[in-house]
Amino acid sequence: MTQLQEEIKQLIIDVLNLEEITPDDIDTDMALFGDGLGLDSIDALELGLAIKNRYGIVLSAENEETKHIFYSVKTLADFVASQQH
């Protein structure tokens, strides 16, 4: 599980070109958007596409649910794990 979380942290850094940040700087429970890591709507689109490409998972059309899944590295990893098994 931690491995998947680390993988997602690295993915976020690579996809979004977060040059000055290392995986250790991202807290697993930290909010990715808004006050936390401070990602914006462009990042959300890019991240969504990257997650889909890497893990081949389909996100539900329900907006609220997506927001919840993308809340933090932890929620995202939990969702990816649940889809892979």
Partner: peptide, 13 residues
């Protein structure tokens, strides 16, 4: 679509 978000982006992709 209602808003441009990750879901609509994935669909379009």
């Amino acid at each position: 679509v209602d808003t441009l978000n990750a879901n609509s982006a994935i669909l379009l992709k």
